[in-house]
Design a binder for these strands. Structure first.
Length: 297
DNA sequence: CGCATTTCCTGGTAGC
DNA sequence: TGCTACCAGGAAATGC
């Protein structure tokens, strides 16, 4: 989407910004600051579109002190950015300057998306963006960076991936697909992944996202490109949404569970379960000096 | 601080 | 046909 919008938006100035059928609130904060600002670039961090803005300097010395803004867009579940008016659930309408003036529309049926203007880097209202790890397709995302990020948490690996902290850009579908590719069970505590599992997971994340992007992403129901096309990657999903179907790798059944309140699909055979802490397992004393006091809460 | 739970929101669908 | 119940989930807010 960033790639599509880049030539469409870069260098254009916002003439008008209208909030449509959306209550005032943080998800649409700052839109009134948009008119008069020029879109300098279209960038992306994980699932957030980040568009630096600049105000035309009409008077030397005054505009220079004005802090620059950024337009932040997140699709949530059902957000769609379009160049033509959507049939319903329109939330934002932008009018843009240019040789031939253009419009931009943000549609969002379920209202989980956001379309807001903030000061550059002022992510106080966007804690996930503020604490986000390297983007999955950025060279800064390496097996080592992933290893460091996973080592500090005992949360289920899938839950940690969805937090966007170890790596940015992995949502529910791609988390399941990447874990399947890497043969890692979604509930394995993050810090218990072996070094080779971390390497496999790193490769799997970059691989699944790159392949999906080649097909313009995954459209289950709602997602559309800016041109209104569907993404074709859904047909290539190995496990997501395929409960009861055979694993494409080993033939065992794909099972659906819930991890971190999210539907989770995994192969029942080739994604090995984390070491069980079930009652039936004999309790083995911890290595090293016995703990004399209960762990502080 | 870290993790778990709840909340937001609407369309589609299963079940009756 | 029409009704209710439930499910989908990214990220923020709240709870512990």
């Amino acid at each position: 989407m960033a790639r599509e919008l880049r030539p469409w938006l870069t260098g254009r100035t916002v003439i008008g910004a209208e909030r449509v059928d959306a209550p005032p609130g943080p998800k649409y904060a700052g839109l009134e600051r948009l008119p008069g600002q020029r879109i300098e670039a279209v960038t992306r961090r994980g699932k957030f579109l980040v568009m630096p803005l600049g105000r035309m300097e009409l008077l030397e010395g005054t505009a220079a002190s004005a802090p620059a803004d950024e337009l932040i867009v997140h699709l949530g579940m059902t957000g769609v950015v379009r160049a033509t008016p959507p049939p319903g659930h329109l939330r934002v309408h932008l009018h843009l300057s240019g040789p031939e003036p253009r419009d931009l529309y943000f549609q969002d049926v379920r209202r989980f998306g956001r379309f807001m203007v903030v000061g550059v880097g002022d992510y106080a209202g966007l804690p996930t963006l503020a604490a986000m790890g390297p983007d999955a397709l950025d060279p800064d995302f390496t097996p080592e960076s992933l290893q460091r990020a996973l080592a500090i948490s005992g949360a289920p690996i899938k839950t940690l991936l969805l937090s966007q902290r170890p790596v940015a850009g992995v949502g529910n579908i791609y988390a399941d697909e990447a874990l399947w590719l890497a043969k890692v069970h979604p509930e394995r505590p993050a810090r218990r992944l072996t070094r080779s599992q971390v390497s496999a997971l790193h490769a799997a994340i970059t691989d699944v996202l790159a392949r999906s992007l080649l097909l313009q992403g995954t459209t289950l129901n709602d997602y559309r490109t800016v041109n209104g096309e569907v993404g074709a990657f859904a047909a290539h999903l190995a496990v997501y949404g395929r409960a009861g179907e055979p694993c494409p790798r080993c033939g065992a059944a794909v099972v659906r569970t819930v991890v971190g309140q999210r539907a989770t699909y995994a192969c029942s055979r080739c994604q090995t379960r984390p070491r069980s802490s079930s009652r039936s397992a004999p309790r083995r004393p911890a290595r090293g000096r016995p703990r004399l006091t209960p762990r502080a809460k």
